[in-house]
Amino acid sequence: MESNFLPSDYFPIVLQLLAAIGFVGLTMLATHLVGPKRKTKDKLETFECGIEQQGDARAPISIKYFLVAILFVLFDVEVIFMYPWAVNFREMGMQGLMEMFVFIGLLLAGFVYIIKKGALDWE
C-alpha cells in the first residue's frame, strides 16, 4: 500500500461503467428496433396483477416508511466509519478496538431505544 495512488488508476472503472451503460443502451435500442409493435388500448394500460387499477401512484404514503429510511441512513453513516477502521485494524491494536467499541456502544444504545420504543413495529 506504499505506492502512490493516482486518479488515473480509476480508468478501468470508467471503462467498465461505459461498457455497462453501453450494454443497457444497446439492448434497449435493439429490442425497440427488432420487436414487433401492436399497440392496443388494453396492452398499454398499466398492469396491476390482473386487478383493475385504481387511483394513481401519487398518493401520500405513511410516515412509517420514512422512519425506516432515516434509521437506515443513520446506521449507514455508522458503517461508513468502520471502513477506515477496518483497513487499519491490525495496526491500531487494542486501542483502536476500544475506540470502536465506544462508538458502536453509543449507537447500540440508540438501537435498543428504537426497539424498546417499538419504532420498527408495523402495528
Binding site: K64, L67, L106, L107
Partner: peptide, 13 residues
C-alpha cells in the same frame, strides 16, 4: 447520530 435517531423516533412515532 444517537440524537438524530431519538429525534426521528420521537417525531415520527
Amino acid at each position: 447520530l444517537l440524537s438524530a435517531m431519538v429525534g426521528a423516533v420521537l417525531l415520527a412515532k
